[in-house]
Design a protein around this nucleic acid. Structure first.
Lengths: 102, 102
DNA sequence: TATTATCGTAAGCCATTACTTACGGTAAGT
DNA sequence: ACTTACCGTAAGTAATGGCTTACGATAATA
């Protein structure tokens, strides 16, 4: 399971902003850093974490590295959500009933 | 946006295990700690974080506190996913085309 | 009332980690 | 060849955060 990498990668606020930015539109590292309150190396480090988690991919364009979101990465998150969504619904419904006569 | 709390809450591995456990079946704090490699106070702290993030709720049963997953919490995650899912799909498709003729 | 069971919180410690600056490396331009 | 643009990585620092032990509080029980 890559759940651990994926969730912890998205767990950081700044890093999630990086992901959201490249999801909206693929961008280069410098361009990303320009729109964020952290330095360019910091963005590079965040992108590495996101890449290791399978959430982004990059391609070279001259000296620039264009990063883009990787849909398959979110698919894992989707699978996790689907499962615990139904679990939560069932257990919550049962819990409400228990709370009523308790 | 409670996204920050939600993602950072689910970002920790142990805390996610706590959530998954109560999602499968509502349980008391002590019972949760018995199935995890951490102490009971640690579980309490995790449950507080999950509660602040709107992911769990609890009800009293004597001295015991029964925690249950809160579906609406996952609904927020679902909403986030739906949005960046489509964004990622579009930008990724466009990126593949750009990479082809680049 | 005294005891037991269950839990939340405070204090402190330690590991993780996010950030910055400095450096080296590759590709395009002159 | 030299300079410029862009980027990844290393090193070091500051801070965040997870864990444990200790304590106090509430509710059921005898």
């Amino acid at each position: 399971m890559a759940y651990d990498n994926m969730f912890s990668a998205l767990g950081d606020s700044t890093r999630r902003q990086v992901f959201e930015a490249v999801a909206e539109c693929p961008r280069a590292v410098g361009d990303l850093a320009a729109d964020l309150p952290v330095s360019r190396p910091a963005v590079s480090q965040h992108l590495k974490v996101l890449s290791d988690a399978g959430l982004v991919v990059c391609r070279a364009e001259g000296t620039r590295r264009i990063y883009a979101a990787r849909p398959e990465g979110l698919a894992d998150l989707r699978a996790w959500l689907e499962r615990y969504w139904s679990d939560a619904l069932e257990s919550f419904a049962a819990e409400v009933n228990k709370g009523r006569d308790a």
